[in-house]
Design a binder for these strands. Structure first.
Lengths: 310, 310
DNA sequence: ACTATTTGTTCTATAATTTGCAACAATATG
DNA sequence: CATATTGTTGCAAATTATAGAACAAATAGT
């Protein structure tokens, strides 16, 4: 039983005029409003509201209590605000690890915007594709993309990374366009080497069946931009994230294939060291990233051929 | 999540100096204290307490919040107190129904004491042995003695009514003393006529077996005092409540028999109309009765031969 | 005057949250 | 160096809160 919740219900009823309206205002059921008022009256051993003729009116005790209650709730808001305002001017260091490709492009742009809005933040950005130990290496936070391993790290989802399969128009003119994932076996694949599973490209049929294609891998790289450049150069077919390939698609340098097959998507996550309160500047920053990215990130805008996530 | 509980935990920690001491002070586990503090810090997005080197100290934010929190909690106490104090001077009417015998003796004495302590209460006392309809007849409360029927009435137990079987010394000298309930068949019984079950006097053996005696009823009355007077006059044996017979036993005018057999006891109850908040003056009054009566009421004091309740 | 709608209350099944104990690492004390 | 106490956290159990439904009562609309 929360005294403040009861009081808040009471003042909301007085201000709204009815239990029903107070419930809507507070986002709770009117039965909960009724119960909280009754609890308050029981604890005070006094009737605060007359509920006669389908109208409410305050008793004398209710008038007395209402005036005091309003002040108490205002004081509580002030107390909370005064504490959180103490830290609105974010300051301090932000030691962040992120994947290279994502970090160099979308993340860094977003970080720079953030730093412009918070001049007292000092950034220490480590772009690498390793699964670093946050605690041992003293990071405040890392951005991870993919399917998270079970770990003690605290994770917060920032957005969705979608994938496409694509090649340059010239490659497709020269080698033909695969229309089924099995066709990829006869094509050159450009493989991202930092992915732990073997070079099988997973797809889901419109009927929901999982398929695995095995293109002939001629180029492996641990850098998505490098693979994208290879694809633009007509070196083969690549399957990769829209946050790298999206702009090239929009520019017509690459075109998507196998659009009717679902490409499994993955999450973009912030991960934090466990067991401790997340500092406000870290929390504000990850909120900022989540707002900027989300499940429909801006780099996916305009990609009408985007396959649905698995 | 209970804001009030969190803030209360925080101020307790500051005042007690440790989480453990605060837990003891609040009557909760230290793990609950720890969790509530963490919740508060999470909601305020700010560390309030340093927990370093096994000592606590307030952060600047914590100092700020503590001062405000203490004031808020004090204001809340004042607000609640000001409402309950408005009704400490009890006033208004008290319409009460009660059984005749109990009402004329113990209850009325207690009521008079109560009225002396609360001069603004006006009593409307209806002593009768009917099972009246509280709602229809506009009673605030009734006192009922016995085994309550299932009903919509709200009941509150005030105490225990114990029974004894007794007769005058002169009766026993003249007719002999029954030593087993079956012996009552050869004796004159004085029967209370307001009891719904037939004139069978129930007893429980020390082994827990239930027995029913059927004395020869020569006098029936719906008034316990009348039956007591008849017993004192040597007219027969009576089985009745100690709140009537206790004083006569202590004065030696009556003596108990069949003490080793358990006499079923019953409750003394306050009953209220259902479905509404019990007015404070009614609640204070029934508290007063419960304090005065209880499971070992004063009229049972000094009755060493009192049989144990069934 | 009758019907429909909305009110506040209360019961109940379900969901959510809280709680306390135990285990643990860390630190202070004897 | 051993012991005691601290605050934290996981987890099973207990407790509480919640929302929806049903109801009686009152108001508004026809």
């Amino acid at each position: 039983m929360d005294k403040f919740a009861d009081i808040e219900a009471f003042t909301a009823v007085v201000e709204a005029g009815t239990f029903s309206a107070a419930g809507e205002r507070l986002g709770i059921a009117k039965s909960v409003v009724s119960r909280r008022i009754s609890q308050l009256e029981q604890r005070l051993d006094s009737r605060l509201l007359h509920r006669t003729t389908r109208r409410l009116s305050l008793t004398d005790a209710g008038k007395n209590f209402y005036q005091r209650a309003v002040q108490i709730l205002a004081d509580l808001d002030d107390a909370e605000l005064s504490v959180t305002e103490e830290t609105t001017d974010l300051r301090g260091s932000l030691k962040l690890a992120a994947p290279l490709s994502f970090g160099l492009t979308h993340l860094s742009k977003t970080i720079f915007d953030f730093l412009n809005e918070h001049p007292a933040i000092e950034l220490n950005l480590d772009l690498n594709d390793r699964n670093i130990n946050l605690i041992e290496e003293g990071f405040d936070m890392a951005v991870r993309i993919g399917i998270l391993q079970d770990s003690t790290l605290v994770a917060r989802r920032l957005g969705t990374m979608r994938q496409v399969t694509c090649a340059s128009p010239s490659y497709l003119e020269q080698h033909g366009e695969p229309t089924h994932p099995a066709d990829l076996q006869q094509h050159v694949g450009l493989q991202y080497s930092n992915i732990s599973y073997k070079n099988q490209w997973g797809y889901k049929t419109p009927e929901g069946k999982m398929l695995f294609a095995q293109p002939q891998i001629r180029i492996r790289a641990n850098n998505g931009e490098a693979l994208a450049a290879a694809a633009v150069a007509g070196m083969g077919i690549t399957k990769g994230p829209t946050f790298i390939l999206g702009s090239l698609l929009k520019e017509g340098k690459l075109v998507t294939i196998l659009d009717e097959y679902q490409h499994p998507s993955a999450g973009i996550y912030a991960v934090y060291p466990p067991g401790r309160l997340i500092p406000r500047r870290i929390k504000v920053f990850s909120d900022y990233l989540a707002d900027r990215f989300g499940d429909h990130p801006y780099w996916d805008d305009g990609l009408s051929s985007l396959s649905k996530p698995a």
